[in-house]
Design a protein around this nucleic acid. Structure first.
Lengths: 238, 238
DNA sequence: CGGACTGTTGAGAAATTTCAATGTTGGTGG
DNA sequence: CCACCAACATTGAAATTTCTCAACAGTCCG
């Protein structure tokens, strides 16, 4: 059942005992449809959410109604680590596709973390990688524009999804509308559309009907100034 | 000596015992001058760094040489929490002003965190707030431009510095050159200069010689669509 | 005094947004 | 099966923002 708990284990060298504890912690499984809200901003939060399959967005809205997607979660991601300590999130977490979610009460998470150094490390590691991804996205927003910014996005997704076996040589799913992608990339959907066309015509990446395909990895990386070190894809020893 | 350890305590309700443990953990004190590198990107990292006084920037550079400041640390901030688990950072941490730093070996940090739930909570809380700040900065970069983006920056700094008693009704220090501020705001220093002028002429904020002063807090907040909830300024119970 | 860094301004070029219109697709009910 | 509607995608053109290039003033320091 929980191939993603196993995935976490494989990546971060959890012991069998830790894995056992995780599996039997008493996860509640729930399915969400596209556009359903998984966690609502500002509401009291008593459970942590693990995304087993599908795509989820962390979206923030300001008083003026502008929406910014501040992060995208993919299979195997803990979606609201920081909610455990704060007891709420400032962002909505929204399903971008059909999602399978496993959730666990905060109390139980805290207990697991205290009891097992391996689990604690796993959680911290995910937090550290999330942080790293955000830093790099800030860099992309601040220093790159148009096509280069999008190139970064497609590079990052390619690697994150390859890690969990979702991206193949046929490309990968990325179930966002152009409007949603624009909310993530920090540009208007009109401009996004034109940038996508440029990338397509340069035969670097194509994106249509929620499916992305990288045609020229090296040149795309170059355009994006993409350095994958920040994703910490290789194992880290305890 | 450690008024900032005490500050952490005050804010997050550490027990006296925790505070005692923190104080006596064996911090190494070091002073840095403006522009000195405190942590270098990619190098092995064996200590965590607490900024006692001064300002520090997390700065990231890409192959093309573009520099982005992804965060600013102020007195009382743990600068490299995530380095504890990753063993290195992808960013340089650079002193923006004279800085007093207290550092502690990772092993000791891990030990403290395991031994004391209060300290663990303090560290997590800081990580969660850092995350929150980053999310909001991503939102600012993605949805606001020019003066509104800067307005957000000045609002945030006002509150973060007021919390540690640095911002008063006379304003607050912000020891960045316009070039550095531009590297943070994701715009050119030329454009930044013009935006600063606009803010000054609108009598919302003034910034000169490393000193910022907010003249019309409410109107500034409004321009920035600033909602301070994300800073979690109020206490959170254990 | 000269040199480096910082801040300021102007003007034209380029990127991006805004507004508006049109095409395309997929689903739903008749 | 078709008509129709609602998202979604695409394009054009003008307005606005931002960048680039270039020049110049101020300050600090050796």
């Amino acid at each position: 059942m929980d191939r993603f708990v196993a995935k976490l284990r494989g990546r971060q060298a959890l012991s069998e005992e830790d894995e056992q504890q995780l599996r039997e912690a008493g996860w509640t499984h729930r399915d969400y449809a596209r556009h359903q809200v998984i966690v609502r901003a500002g509401e009291d939060l008593t459970e942590g959410h693990l995304l087993l399959s599908g795509f989820a967005a962390r979206a923030q809205q300001d008083n003026a109604g502008n929406r910014q997607i501040v992060g995208i979660g993919v299979g195997g991601d803990l979606l609201d680590i920081h909610g455990v300590i704060l007891g709420r999130l400032e962002q909505d977490i929204v399903a971008l596709s059909a999602c399978q979610i496993a959730s666990l009460p905060h109390a139980k998470i805290k207990e697991l973390v205290v009891r097992s150094p391996g689990i604690q490390k796993t959680v911290w590691l995910q937090a550290a990688i999330d942080h790293s991804i955000q830093c790099n996205w800030i860099q992309a927003l601040g220093t790159r524009r148009g096509t280069a910014r999008l190139a970064h996005l497609f590079c990052e997704m390619q690697l994150r999804l390859a890690l969990v076996g979702i991206a193949t040589e046929m490309g990968y799913p990325l179930p966002l509308s152009q409007q949603e992608l624009a909310d993530y990339a920090g540009m208007t959907h009109v401009h996004l559309n034109r940038c996508l066309r440029e990338l397509r015509e340069a035969r670097l990446v194509s994106f249509a009907q929620g499916w992305a395909r990288v045609h020229q990895w090296e040149r795309l990386k170059e355009l994006a100034c993409f350095d994958e070190a920040y994703l910490n894809l290789r194992l880290i020893e305890v």
